[in-house]
Nucleic acid binder design. Sequence first.
DNA 1: GCGGCAATGTTAACACTGTAAACATTGGCG
DNA 2: CGCCAATGTTTACAGTGTTAACATTGCCGC
Lengths: 214, 214
Amino acid sequence: MTNAHPDRPSRTTYRHGDLHHALLTAGLELARDGGPAAVVLREATRRAGVSPSAAYRHFADRRALLEAVCSAAQSGLANAIQDALDQLPAANDRAAAARAHLRAVGAGYVAFARAEPNLFRTAFSPSENLERAESPARAGRSGMTPFQLLNAALDDLVEAGELPRERRAGAEFLAWSAVHGLAMLAIDGPLRGLGPAQIRGVTERLLDMVHHGL
Amino acid sequence: MTNAHPDRPSRTTYRHGDLHHALLTAGLELARDGGPAAVVLREATRRAGVSPSAAYRHFADRRALLEAVCSAAQSGLANAIQDALDQLPAANDRAAAARAHLRAVGAGYVAFARAEPNLFRTAFSPSENLERAESPARAGRSGMTPFQLLNAALDDLVEAGELPRERRAGAEFLAWSAVHGLAMLAIDGPLRGLGPAQIRGVTERLLDMVHHGL
DNA sequence: GCGGCAATGTTAACACTGTAAACATTGGCG
DNA sequence: CGCCAATGTTTACAGTGTTAACATTGCCGC
């Protein structure tokens, strides 16, 4: 069981063609079912049908690959949030729409953590990481990173008159803290055992807390 | 630099005496300056002045050692919270005291994360972990785990009439989510660069949010 | 007291990892 | 068309977790 993809079509050309992309894809696959610790250089090269050292032509070291995978995972998170936003019904009440907007961001965040716990863990694994929360590599199809999607929702809340402008600054950290913490509890913590409906319930309550407390 | 403790007093007896404890201590030291990934069996045995395989007489595998270290780290977190509680001035206002009680738990939590980021990361690293949030091994000098200290604070809040009893159930998850998330942002996230005073400020604001939103 | 057993450590080995240096191949540019 | 830079391979080394076979010795029952 050392090789999940024993004999890949075993390319005939000497050059691979798009090894960088192949390694990233393999790494993402490894992360999806194994978390950050499972993204291993040699296994990635194996799946790409290439010798171990070949990876060093495209990534400085294992850490560099892991960070690329991590960015891809954050991009997936951004898409999950976007999914939640897309399902938002068109509302005529501006204020209610803004509130729903913020809630959808939180709900999408937690939903992704539950659907892809290993990718979620990977997205937030390496230190020196979250710092660049706005790197384009972390963006989803909307072109925005999870952090930016959250900020947009908060801005919307202000413009809708639902959040006093003087409380806007820093609010993203409060909201993010709450949602991120909940996501962690939901996949690794005491909330792990709960079913989807219950998780949704706790999430709603937490979003209430954020809304009232912000 | 493969061995930080080159020639330990190199015991004369064949038996070590308390290898289990020595390994755990070494593991904790490794975790303190290197995080969960740095707690490595062979290095721990080296520091204990013992051969690599000896560890297997006391821990099933590396994971088992890591989990023991993790419990110890949580115990440290419990003590940090207790420190914050101990510094609480004796108040005569029951309600204010209960509010301060909860805030102290949150503040101690974040303070520990900032003071010992690697231990904090270790405390919450292995999956299958937070589940047993009440294991005695995770308790601090008060005999309570971080989770139990939080619950006690919330109970106090109810008894002081500051939290409606019907909103008590599950409140621990909301409060924990917020504080835990903030702690993560403060050590690995965008809040990493902030100074102690600024972190205290954000923490206060977050605790306001929790208090108003609970 | 003492003999043997079970607990504890040691040695040696295996399979795996990341990484570097020297070498091989080849696409494309002058 | 020939050469060079980019890309991939081979080989090697140090480090890791883990196991099996062996060594030592504290302690418990006779």
